[in-house]
Amino acid sequence: MRIILATGNKGKIEEFKKLLPNEEVITFKEIIGDYEVVEDKDTFQGNALKKAQEIYEKIGDEEAIVISDDSGITVPDINNEPGIYSARYAGVNANDKENNAKLISKLNEKNLEKTPAYYTACIAIIYKGYPYTVHGWMHGEVINKELGSGGFGYDPMFIPTGFDKTLGELGYEAKKDFSHRTKALNLAKKVLDVIL
């Protein structure tokens, strides 16, 4: 089956391709070119649905399977930041390093070397005009420095529960077994099995 991803995030695209090795996974840009969906909803679910719906409508093929994901990290001790703003925490076009630096500075403001945090992933599927959503979570702690060069986003700052290394140090092979996106995608696969 061909799955169209409603994302331009290279890290997410690679992760989806690795998690769906038996499917043809392409990005919406390969069909309609550059297009930006404004993420203006106040939940991960709202943003994921908006991206999937808008791309589905732009493609104009009722049989298309469009999948989008909205995800991020939440740190309760700093007012649940960055949350839905994870990708643009340090500004609209911020990169991972800039976002991580802002989170480190926020932790340092509160003298937090390590504090509980969790990742959320919401995956939205649009097929034949119908929306479906699933969620996955990964709990652990965020630290006030970067360790390791694996993964992307906040991975070098996040130590998952049951581990003593960051996702940046553990690498993809470990992360793929329990990440928020893996959990959400396993549920999404079940949805696809039912609707297709």
Rank of each mutant, 00 (worst) to 15 (best):
L20H: 08
N22A: 06
E24D: 14
I26D: 00
T27G: 12
F28L: 00
K29Q: 14
I31F: 00
I32L: 00
I32V: 04
G33N: 05
G33F: 03
G33P: 07
D34S: 13
E39N: 08
E39P: 04
E39D: 03
D40T: 06
D40I: 03
K41F: 08
K41D: 14
T43G: 10
F44Y: 14
Q45W: 09
Q45L: 11
L49D: 06
L49S: 09
Q53L: 06
I55N: 01
Y56K: 06
E57S: 15
G60E: 09
D61W: 08
E63C: 04
A64G: 05
A64C: 07
A64K: 00
I65H: 01
I67D: 00
S68N: 04
S68Q: 02
D69R: 04
S71E: 10
S71F: 01
T74D: 01
V75I: 13
P76W: 07
P82T: 02
I84C: 04
Y85N: 13
S86M: 04
S86R: 04
S86A: 12
A87L: 04
R88D: 07
Y89S: 03
Y89C: 02
A90G: 10
A94F: 02
K97H: 12
E98C: 09
A101H: 12
A101L: 14
K102V: 08
I104K: 11
I104V: 14
K106H: 15
E109F: 02
N111A: 09
E113A: 14
E113F: 13
T115R: 08
A117Y: 02
Y118L: 06
Y119C: 05
T120V: 14
C122T: 13
I123M: 11
A124P: 10
I125F: 02
T133P: 11
T133I: 10
T133H: 11
H135E: 15
G136D: 11
G136Y: 10
W137T: 15
G140N: 02
V142I: 12
V142S: 00
V142R: 00
I143L: 02
I143V: 11
N144K: 05
E146A: 13
L147N: 14
